[in-house]
Amino acid sequence: MRAPLPQEVHATYLLVDKSDRTLTAFSGDTPIRTYTGIAFGDAPQGHKQFEGDERTPEGRYTIDTRNPESAFHLSLRISYPNSADIAFAQGLGRDPGGDIFIHGQPNGSSMARIPGDWTDGCIALSNAEIEELWRLVPDGTIIDIQP
């Protein structure tokens, strides 16, 4: 178990590297915590484009709200889709989808972490990890999601 971060420490930026399966929280230019082995949507390769494609978005977004009563153990919403995502999908007569979150495991699950990629496009952490991230990340924090 890692030592807890001091209460006064907060993240100012999040970086998700899909190929390395890491989420790193930064305070300024300093990494303060890296979560490894994170899970993505059932189709983890490529940028989310449409509702139901099971992909996790790539690009720059923000954490725009939080849901303490989601179907998963806590959830931080990512601001997907942005205007470019909407324009692309609508140009093809499709819905870009939405409701992309960083969250913990399904409520009531007895597993510490479901193996593999299993979300509908979200980023899944263990419950202990999302509890820490929930405390570290204020709404409005920038998140970059890289391929």
Rank of each mutant, 00 (worst) to 15 (best):
I63E: 05
D64A: 03
Q45E: 13
L15T: 06
G59V: 07
E58D: 03
R60S: 15
R66H: 14
R60L: 14
F50Q: 05
A11Q: 14
T36Q: 13
T24W: 02
T65N: 15
D17A: 05
R33F: 02
G59T: 04
D64G: 11
R77F: 04
P44T: 00
G52N: 09
T22N: 03
G28D: 13
Q49P: 08
T12I: 12
D20W: 02
D29C: 08
T65W: 13
L74A: 14
A43F: 03
L76C: 07
K18N: 06
F26W: 11
T30R: 11
A43E: 10
G41D: 01
H47M: 09
L14P: 02
R21V: 01
L76G: 09
P68W: 07
D42H: 14
V16Y: 04
Y13T: 12
A25D: 05
F50I: 12
G28F: 06
A25N: 08
G46I: 05
A39E: 03
Y35P: 11
T62L: 10
D17F: 02
R55T: 00
A39W: 01
I78R: 03
R33W: 02
I32A: 10
G46C: 03
D17L: 03
R66I: 12
I38G: 03
P44V: 01
H47L: 05
G37D: 11
A11L: 07
P44F: 00
G28E: 10
R21L: 04
Y35N: 08
S75Y: 03
P31Q: 03
I38H: 02
D42Y: 12
T24N: 07
G46K: 00
A39S: 15
Y13D: 15
T12C: 13
Q49E: 13
R21E: 00
E51N: 07
G46E: 00
K48E: 04
P31D: 06
L14Y: 07
P31S: 07
A39G: 05
I32R: 10
Y35S: 14
